[in-house]
């Protein structure tokens, strides 16, 4: 299958290991991966902060970067992020319509219909749960809010993780509770966000996991930033990184790399 990759703005600049792992994983599974160079950002940050006019050019750029999918250039678009996929699917059309751009809205909706979050693409479109990964570590999974409640990915990420060879997957208590990130919420309501983060970290530590994984780099940046601050000794890895990990090319869980930050 010919698959176009959305790196996401955060993945491109701050967490390139997530889109990189996505590309390598899909190639390992025998697919052809493309990176439409015109892409930048899906517009989610602007939308969620209320800057809908400012979101229009961002959304337009995204839609135009990926619209070749409608001409059969690629078979599908993959996004290693639940919230970016959610924004593409549930916000871009609204932004265009609100600005009176009905044609662009229709194109956005059509592109969105070909866009999948990573676990959706693997399980629903490609029909695999065992991707041949190897990751012999104790791992806990945080289902991010948008993947859970906007996309309804359900247990797809967990099915993928369970099939990973050597993994010791432990359940996260109160897993479905928000980590408190919420984009600019973390700044505008920093204290409340921190209170939510504190509870999430307590649950993560209670699992005894050495790795926390999720399908969104943004939430991992938040929880990982907190775990790093308290020197919790828990590393954060994007779901794609674990699925891309093999015996020959293991995802790094090196000593000193336990703070969840990018290397």
């Amino acid at each position: 299958m010919r698959i176009a990759l959305t790196a996401t703005c955060l993945g491109d600049v701050m967490f390139p290991q997530a889109p990189r792992a996505t590309a390598l994983l899909l190639e390992r599974l025998g697919h052809e991966v493309f990176f439409p160079e015109r892409q930048a950002c899906c517009g989610q940050m602007h939308v969620n902060t209320g800057y809908l006019d400012e979101a229009v050019p961002v959304v337009r750029n995204h839609v135009e970067a990926f619209s070749p999918v409608l001409d059969g250039e690629w078979d599908a678009i993959v996004v290693p992020s639940g919230s970016c996929t959610g924004s593409v699917r549930h916000q871009q059309g609204m932004v265009c319509r609100r600005a009176g751009l009905d044609d662009l809205a229709r194109t956005a909706d059509a592109v969105a219909a070909k866009t999948y979050e990573l676990s959706e693409l693997l399980v629903d479109v490609l029909g695999v749960t065992d991707v041949g990964a190897y990751f012999p570590h104790r791992v806990t999974y945080h289902p991010t809010c948008h993947s859970l409640r906007m996309l309804h990915v359900g247990d797809k990420p967990l099915r993928l993780l369970r099939a990973v060879e050597g993994i010791d997957l432990v359940e996260l208590p109160a897993a479905e509770s928000c980590c408190g990130f919420g984009g600019t919420f973390a700044l505008k309501n920093a204290e409340t966000s921190t209170a939510m983060l504190a509870d999430k970290m307590t649950h993560v530590k209670a699992t005894g996991a050495e790795v926390l994984t999720a399908g969104d780099a943004s939430c991992l940046m938040h929880i990982g930033g907190g775990l790093s601050r308290i020197r919790a000794g828990v590393r954060t890895l994007h779901l794609a990184e674990i699925l891309a990990s093999t015996k020959d090319a293991p995802a790094p869980v090196a000593a000193g790399a336990t703070d969840g930050s990018a290397r």
Binding site: P16, L24, T194
Partner: peptide
């Protein structure tokens, strides 16, 4: 105040993709 921020990546994904050898072995991991 309550969280660290990781340093931005040394190389963006975009640059990595561009610099990547075309015949790079498909099995390379993370």
């Amino acid at each position: 105040r309550s969280r660290d921020l990781p340093a931005p990546a040394q190389q963006t994904f975009r640059d990595w993709w561009r610099d990547r050898p075309v015949d790079e072995p498909r099995t390379e991991g993370g």
